[in-house]
């Protein structure tokens, strides 16, 4: 009797000893009390991103008439709708590529300035202005009666005003102006992340400025440029205000977000609008995946020279 109870007590003791407490096991996976701080962020993402996305996805399969794919079939059979993909890409891709390419030399130069902060501030101001203000400003500045055209005509460079707004050019200029600061800041941070001693070492080994850029800076920058391209592209792809204000929203610059807007607020077809939004997301995702896949062809490690 006493024997058995002793043995039982020992057994329970041993089993509690052997089993690691759950807190310790969680801690081994880096989960502890502080991990709970992530909860608000997770709720935020679930409530404001995941849920609306899934809601939209489901909605896009519930058209007003026809089977569950009817909206998608309608989009891809109507050139007035599917052409918007091309119209948007025709704006977003060149604008993004120009911004990324131009940001490289500017960032290379700014990196060596003493008054970097001042210049950075000036370049960042367009971000704080927002696209609508930029569009209004450009309408005045580039319009037929704007300063630019009047000055050029006064100087006799042109005889009739250049058509720079309410067309493709206007939207393009606005996209470059409003997108550049963001692209530039990202490029600048990637470039300053490259250890300056690498370029110095290359110089002492006989590399000219051009060779240093080609063999050292550019290969180490490709990763950053790919990410930069993706972020800038996604921003540009959802262009709406400048396409409406500075473009020809019924013609050349009828971008995909305009189609979605019209479906939702002119035809009150929420399901169709959701479908267009889903297609828009899919096109963006395709471009981003292609860009990120492309960077895998290059070196992907740290851009420092020494031991991490």
């Amino acid at each position: 009797m006493t024997h058995t109870s002793d043995r039982l007590a020992r057994a329970t003791q041993e089993s509690t000893h052997e089993r690691t407490p759950w807190r310790v096991r969680l801690a081994l996976h880096d989960i502890d009390g502080i991990t709970l701080l992530v909860v608000p962020a997770v709720l935020f993402v679930l409530g404001l991103f995941v849920y609306p996305f899934l809601y939209g996805l489901v909605l896009s399969f519930k058209p007003r008439a026809g089977d569950f794919l009817a909206n998608y079939r309608k989009f891809f059979s109507d050139p007035f709708l599917y052409d918007t993909i091309y119209a948007t890409l025709r704006l977003a891709l060149p604008a993004t590529i120009i911004n990324v390419l131009v940001s490289i030399p500017v960032a290379l130069r700014v990196r060596k300035l003493h008054r970097r902060r001042l210049l950075t501030t000036i370049l960042v101001i367009p971000i704080t202005l927002g696209t609508v203000l930029i569009a209004e400003g450009l309408l005045n500045y580039l319009g037929p009666q704007g300063w630019l055209n009047r000055t050029l005509m006064l100087l006799g460079v042109i005889s009739a005003p250049l058509r720079l707004v309410h067309n493709y050019t206007g939207v393009m200029i606005s996209l470059i102006l409003s997108g550049f600061p963001f692209t530039f800041l990202l490029t600048l941070s990637y470039i300053t992340g490259i250890d300056a001693s690498l370029e110095q070492a290359a110089a002492t080994l006989g590399a000219t400025a051009r060779a240093r850029f080609r063999h050292i800076v550019l290969p180490l920058l490709v990763q950053g440029l790919a990410v930069n391209f993706c972020l800038s592209f996604v921003q540009t792809f959802s262009v709406f205000p400048s396409a409406v204000l500075l473009g020809a929203p019924a013609g050349d610059t009828r971008v995909i977000s305009i189609a979605a807007y019209q479906a939702a607020y002119e035809q009150y077809d929420a399901s169709m609008a959701a479908t267009i939004a889903m297609i828009m997301g899919f096109v963006q995702l395709t471009v981003v995946v292609l860009a990120l896949a492309g960077r895998n062809l290059f070196y992907r490690g740290a851009a420092g020279g020494g031991k991490g």
């Binding site: 250890d195 070492a201 002492t204 080994l205 851009a303 020494g306 031991k307």
Partner: peptide, 13 residues
């Protein structure tokens, strides 16, 4: 001139 840097400055790629 050949130069050896304190942090080696090897080209990581």
């Amino acid at each position: 001139f050949g130069m050896v840097f304190q942090n080696y400055a090897l080209f990581p790629h």
